[in-house]
């Protein structure tokens, strides 16, 4: 069963996945190459700046991968009114678990590309004496961050159903308005606190709040 669910997930998300894989493979090397040319490669601060820029790419790629994997299966099933999954002889939670695991398994592909791409980028760049290369570390962080974001997106999609996009967009604007109103009226920023809770350790999205550095101190 898992193999077949994995296959369907692959078929739906393969274009986005291949985009992520190719991006993860090539972009870090490109950023380092071009970055070293543009900034003074002999300034370690500049080198760290370029590597930090590449780190932003990894964070964005992680979110994109998570989004691509989480969104597609539910949209496809929803367009078919979920008749397929519901008429199969497996309990619904079991089916959702299979879908979830299939997406989570496919995260390994771009993760592997991030690792290989990182190794190529760092071995072909001059690393100053006081700095070190961490392609494995970045790949592990990418894997973990993508899993968390994928799981959050997957949950939003399966809990909010066909209203997921509406729920996400409305929530975003409501939060924005409340934050703005709270700060203008001088109230203690509750939304800011909530945001802090989810983006600082051990909040789920604190995984993104880190140094995504291929080359670091």
């Amino acid at each position: 069963m898992f193999k077949q669910v994995l296959y369907t997930q692959w078929k739906w998300s393969r274009a986005e996945l291949m985009f992520c894989v190719v991006g993860a493979f090539i972009v870090p090397t490109l950023i380092l190459r071009v970055g070293y040319e543009v900034v003074d490669g002999y300034s370690i601060t500049n080198v760290l700046g370029v590597v930090g820029f590449a780190g932003m790419f990894f964070g964005s790629l992680s979110l994109f991968t998570a989004f691509a994997l989480a969104w597609r299966p539910y949209i496809v099933d929803m367009s078919l009114r979920h008749v397929g999954p519901l008429s199969l002889p497996v309990p619904w939670p079991e089916f959702v678990r299979l879908r979830f695991l299939a997406g989570a398994t496919l995260v390994l592909l771009p993760t592997f590309a991030v690792w290989i791409g990182g190794v190529i980028a760092t071995t072909t760049s001059a690393i100053p004496l006081t700095l070190h290369a961490y392609p494995g570390g970045v790949a592990l962080r990418f894997l973990t961050a993508t899993l968390v974001a994928y799981a959050a997106g997957f949950m939003l999609q399966y809990v909010a159903g066909k209203h997921a996009v509406r729920v996400a967009v409305i929530s975003f604007f409501v939060v924005l308005l409340l934050a703005l109103a709270a700060s203008m009226l001088g109230f203690e920023n509750v939304i800011g606190k909530v945001w802090n809770v989810i983006t600082t350790w051990p909040g789920p999205f604190s995984i993104f709040n880190a140094r995504w550095m291929l080359i670091d101190v």
Partner: peptide
């Protein structure tokens, strides 16, 4: 966290 989100997803049937 990821597993928690995943298990919450299975709680609602369409």
């Amino acid at each position: 966290w990821a597993l928690l989100f995943g298990s919450l997803a299975a709680r609602r049937r369409p």
